[in-house]
Write a protein that binds this DNA or RNA. Structure first.
Length: 501
RNA sequence: GGCGCCAUGGUCAAGUGGUUAAGACUCCGCCCUUUCAAGGCGGCAACACGGGUUCGAGUCCCGUUGGCGCUACCA
């Protein structure tokens, strides 16, 4: 179903203000818009609401493009690629707003208001002192042409106000929350165009959405209260009203609602820590939506095939890093191994563990150790901490490892281990396993008692992948020199980070 | 203050008048196991409150409370 039965092709949009790094919540609604469009063969539009010139910057537009790209979402019409209904930046559409404002004036649905900011402010304060809710008095609504002329002569430049119809209830059939009723008595006549010609948000969105033929306005719940006014403007203009749907907000961190600053609400924060885009996509899809059964780990394709706006919940939701990490772990484990290696490599290089242009041997080691850690890591970045002892000559020892190495009889045991490892005819996992078994047979020790000290001595920690794989990839020379150090009784270097292992 | 939206465990959530109120994350325990993970099994933990409607209410209605939003010459 490529087309909406009554309106033709589905057209949706994301309309952010480029005033800071895009918030997770906006990415979430962008994603639902994208899913809705792609599922129906529709069009996904990107438009920037940059009328707040002081705070809008081009670099934030780039951030938005790259975050969408990272998540695998594409767009059809936008400033960067044009489209039939552009331009796609509000500051480049001023003429259009002027034309539509003229039309509102002509049909008598809007009027010029000559009140000054100071006058309005004092009215507002008066209302506040009397304890009544302020609403514009509408005193410019019925100005005669002569009165308007007189004010102009005083040098006043008018703003344009929209005339809200009296005693009328606007009904919106919201796609995610059903019928919403809103009395017009709660809305004062709003200014829609400033004296300097700059349109205000609620007017500009309507003009943009109608001239871009947007069929479904899917956005955050913060816009619910704006919707009745917007519907009134569509009606006054005699233009068809799009369908509306309002998603609950996604909040991040402890209560802080709109922290657009760096940190938890910024999606790049998660990318940098090694969250896979497919995991982020998966997690975000599960916020306010479920496939209708118990599945939690889903691919982008599965989500695209099964997303259903009728199953989207209206309640707000809290972003939970723990669950994202769990989902990320699953996606890491389901990645083809070569692909996982490719994605881990930059993290290892950034940590200085692997050269910028690793040779074949280095890549062999990377592949080997990534395979060992694959079931253990939850983020790509964790690969560095988890595998550094495979790459460095010098390692640090955690308190737990140190304590274990000081246990009774441990040093003597390790001397014997060192001797056997040095004598091994072949350094392979099979040979190491055989030697390990031999050690148990000869000493009568339990595996745990025999192996943990070895692990601690060669890795500096008490937890690692299976011992013989670990030894194999550490290599004979490093393993032996680490054993020598431990056996020597010299003080062991401390592990840098307070890593638990 | 006025108006609007929202309300199931700590978190994400299933549920569309009749269920012992699913499932997942987190946490705890057990199994597996050379350690740590992964995996398997099990456990703790919820319908915000008060009234209705109904034979019967987490589900419908009203009110209260709480959270959020709008109430701008912000978006």
């Amino acid at each position: 179903m490529a087309d909406d039965p009554v309106r033709g092709t589905v057209r949706v949009r994301m309309a952010p203000s480029p005033t800071g790094p895009i918030h997770i919540g906006n990415v979430h609604t962008a994603m639902f818009n994208w899913l809705f469009a792609r599922q129906r063969g529709g069009v996904f539009i990107l438009r920037f609401e940059d009328t707040d010139r002081a705070r809008s910057e081009a670099r934030w537009e780039d951030v938005i493009y790259s975050e969408l790209q990272w998540l695998g979402m594409d767009w059809d019409e936008a400033p960067d690629r044009g489209g039939p209904h552009g331009p796609y930046r509000q500051t480049e559409r001023l003429d259009t707003y002027r034309q539509w404002a003229r039309r509102l004036l002509d049909v008598g649905a809007a009027y010029e208001c000559y009140c000054t900011v100071e006058e309005l402010e004092s009215e507002r304060q008066a209302a506040q002192q009397e304890g009544r809710a302020y609403q514009y008095t509408r005193k410019c609504r019925d100005l005669t042409p002569e009165q308007r002329e007189r004010r102009r002569a005083e040098g006043r430049v008018p703003a344009i106000r929209f005339a809200i119809p009296n005693d009328h209830v606007v009904i919106v059939d919201d796609m995610v929350r059903g019928r919403i009723e809103y009395p017009t008595s709660a809305i004062g006549d709003p200014i829609i165009v400033r004296p300097n010609g700059m349109p205000l948000y609620n007017f500009a969105v309507v003009v943009d959405d109608l001239t871009m033929h947007v069929t479904h306005v899917l956005r955050g719940e913060g816009h619910i209260s704006n919707t009745p006014l917007q519907v009134l403007i569509y009606e006054a203009l005699g233009e068809p009203t799009p369908s509306f749907g309002h998603f609950g907000h996604v909040t991040c961190g402890s209560g802080a609602k709109f922290s657009k600053r760096h940190g938890e609400g910024y999606i790049g924060f998660y990318r940098e820590m090694g969250i896979l885009p497919e995991a982020m996509f998966n997690y975000l899809a599960l916020l306010a939506w479920t496939p209708g059964d118990d599945r939690e780990i889903l691919t982008r394709e599965e989500i695209l095939a099964e997303f259903d706006i009728n199953r989207v919940t209206a309640a707000p939701s809290q972003f939970d890093l723990q669950k994202l990490l769990w989902i990320n772990g699953h996606h890491i484990r389901r990645l083809p191994h070569a692909e996982l290696v490719t994605r881990c490599l930059p993290y290892l290089q950034k940590a200085g563990l692997v050269a910028a242009d690793p040779d074949e041997a280095a890549m062999g080691l990377v592949k080997g150790v990534v395979a060992l850690e694959r079931p253990r890591i939850e983020t790509l970045e964790q690969i560095t901490g988890a595998t550094e002892y495979f790459f460095r000559d010098e390692i640090g020892y955690t308190p737990k490892a140190e304590k274990l190495l000081f246990g009774p009889g441990v040093i003597d045991g390790l001397r014997e281990v060192r001797r056997r490892l040095a004598a091994l005819p072949e350094w392979s996992i099979v040979a190491l396993e055989r030697a390990g078994q031999q050690l148990l047979d000869d000493t009568g020790l339990q595996a745990k008692a025999a192996y943990q000290p070895i692990r601690a001595a060669v890795t500096g920690r008490v937890a690692s992948p299976p011992l013989f794989d670990t030894l194999f990839w550490i290599g004979r020379d490093r393993a032996i020199s680490r054993l020598d150090l431990v056996v020597s009784g010299r003080e062991l270097p401390k592990a840098a980070g307070a890593g638990p292992r």
